[in-house]
């Protein structure tokens, strides 16, 4: 397998009137060609900002990409000119699908117009060529009667259908990679299942590499091959999906798993909750960001932030303790 995307030590901050927001604090990961990577974390953990940073979609200012390397097919996306980023990378190589299909579509233009326009602008398609491609794309994402629906406006589609249209638009220029930012969070479970099935199908059919951002460990389990768990702008654990669910090692991952209720399991006495709330990102991080909520916390955690450490078998985590082994590393 060849590496498609490699991110090294990405740091992103936002300079707001309230102070500096330490959004992403040195994140490194890679994605193989045809692979599926899931990035899991709660709101404000920096998972979306990481992806926006690597596509250079964050507003500068107030945002600032302090350092990092984003290697894509041998070129550093952070060093590319804005022009070539826009014409060669965004949409063409790496496409993105967002959480809210309602606000991502222009309500006063037909779906057909919104689908064909990028084809005509970026790929110089003729109108009838673009129209044919649009019909194919809608068919690909499972919208019934696609040629008729091209003339419809976004409000004539349901939420799930709109998300399908968004995926069709993302696929318009045959991207190599798709970044999906919580694409099913706003949808109902039955519709979520439809979209996940669709993405799996697309992955197998057209060999798409996928980064799937979510806060739902359940969604990840059935979809991803590799999982990154983020907390307060740091990667705290990284492993392939089976290892992570069978053998989670970081206290935060353990706590997240324990907090999940299981539909196929009987009621336990109590859910294990994580006390407190996520840290304030306005404070310069010192020590382990999870220390204030961690039940295994020791003196060292408050003083020094643990680095991401390899445990072998592509499994790594950032904790001074090995909670499973019960010892200080």
């Amino acid at each position: 397998m060849t590496i498609l995307l490699e991110v090294k030590n990405l740091i992103t901050r936002f300079h707001t009137p309230e102070g500096t927001v330490f959004a992403v604090n040195g994140v490194s990961f890679s994605l193989e060609e045809g692979g599926t990577l899931a990035v899991v974390g709660e709101s404000g953990c920096g998972k979306s900002v990481t992806m926006m940073s690597l596509l250079r979609l964050i507003p500068i200012p107030p945002g600032e990409i302090v350092s990092g390397i984003v290697n894509y097919h041998g070129q550093d996306l952070l060093k590319l000119s804005e022009n070539s980023m826009q014409s060669d990378i965004r949409g063409k190589e790496i496409a993105m699908v967002f959480q809210d299909p309602m606000t991502s579509l222009n309500p006063v233009l037909t779906i057909g117009r919104q689908l064909t326009e990028p084809l005509r602008v970026h790929l110089n398609y003729q109108p009838d060529q673009a129209r044919k491609r649009a019909v194919d794309l809608l068919e690909l994402v499972g919208i019934p009667d696609p040629s008729k629906r091209l003339g419809d406006y976004p409000h004539q589609f349901s939420g799930g259908m709109r998300q399908r249209v968004m995926i069709a638009m993302a696929l318009a220029c045959n991207p190599t990679m798709l970044i999906a930012d919580e694409p099913t969070t706003a949808l109902d479970v039955t519709i979520q299942a439809q979209i996940i099935e669709l993405v799996k199908e697309l992955r197998d059919k057209i060999g798409l590499s996928i980064i799937w951002i979510t806060h739902d460990l359940g969604v990840v389990a059935g979809l991803a091959e590799h999982v990154i768990v983020m907390y307060a702008g740091y990667i705290v654990e990284e492993a392939d999906v089976d290892t992570l669910y069978e053998n989670p090692r970081h206290p935060y991952t353990l706590a997240l798993m324990a907090a999940l209720p299981h539909a196929e399991r009987r009621r336990e006495s109590r859910l294990k909750s994580i006390p407190g709330a996520p840290p304030n990102l306005l404070v310069e991080p010192s020590g382990c960001p999870f220390a204030s909520r961690c039940e295994y916390v020791v003196e060292k955690c408050r003083l020094e932030n643990p680095p991401l450490k390899a445990l072998g078998n592509e499994h790594s985590m950032a904790c001074w303790l090995d909670v499973k082994m019960g010892e200080l590393q």
Binding site: D216, A221, H262
Partner: peptide
């Protein structure tokens, strides 16, 4: 029920889903 994601990769892969 079958649409609910199960936070366990092996079980999730093994089960048969009814997608509405």
């Amino acid at each position: 029920l079958s649409a609910v994601p199960i936070p366990d990769p092996k079980k999730d892969r093994a089960r048969r889903r009814t997608i509405l």
